[in-house]
């Protein structure tokens, strides 16, 4: 079985379902919760959030290095005097370096989001009712011996159980 799940109307009902599924012996990581809006209190992703900030900072540093190299190295390679200014005008280059830093951070953040949120890969378990407002609580690939207990737990939380083969 690919997945076993039920749909709930609101967050309280979904919360009860999660507790019951937990009590049936499923670890927190294996519980699948799908919703069409962010629901707080489920994902303990603090360390992963920090990782996103680190990726953004890393991207910014790459951008900074690129901007510095682009301006300083090319100005030295083809020195053209303008307005009695030095050949490498670091004041002015700061502007290009700044923009490239921010661009690096922005692009790194978006790229990292695609990876961290596993976007772009084929969907496995999904129900269109989620986008109409229902909250899906279920388990992907449940162990065969757990199926009965899970079905009881979800029904106890008050919803019709569905399966995905």
């Amino acid at each position: 079985m690919t997945a076993l799940y039920a749909l709930f109307d609101n967050a309280q009902a979904a919360r009860r379902a999660i507790e019951l599924v937990r009590a049936a012996g499923v670890p927190h990581r294996e519980i699948l919760v799908l919703s069409n809006r962010p629901l707080e209190g489920f994902d303990e992703g603090r360390s992963r959030a920090t990782r996103q900030w680190l990726v953004a900072t890393g991207g910014g540093l790459v951008g900074l290095a690129f901007g510095t190299a682009l301006t300083t190295l090319t100005q030295t390679a083809w020195p053209l005097s303008t307005g009695n200014m030095p050949i490498v005008t670091w004041w002015a280059n700061l502007i290009i370096m700044f923009e490239m830093t921010m661009l690096g951070a922005i692009l790194a953040t978006c790229g990292a989001l695609l990876v961290f949120a596993r976007l772009g890969r084929s969907r496995k378990v999904y129900d269109p009712a989620v986008s109409a407002g229902q909250i899906l609580v279920g388990v992907e690939r449940p162990r065969p011996e757990q199926v009965g207990e899970l079905q009881r737990a979800l029904r106890a939380a008050g919803a019709a159980v569905r399966t995905l083969e």
Binding site: L80, S81, T82, G83, N84
Partner: peptide
């Protein structure tokens, strides 16, 4: 001009010293 204001502002180095 030795400190020509027209030179730094040209985006393509068409005006340079």
């Amino acid at each position: 001009c030795d400190a020509a204001p027209c030179e730094p502002v040209c985006p393509t180095y068409a005006s340079h010293h």
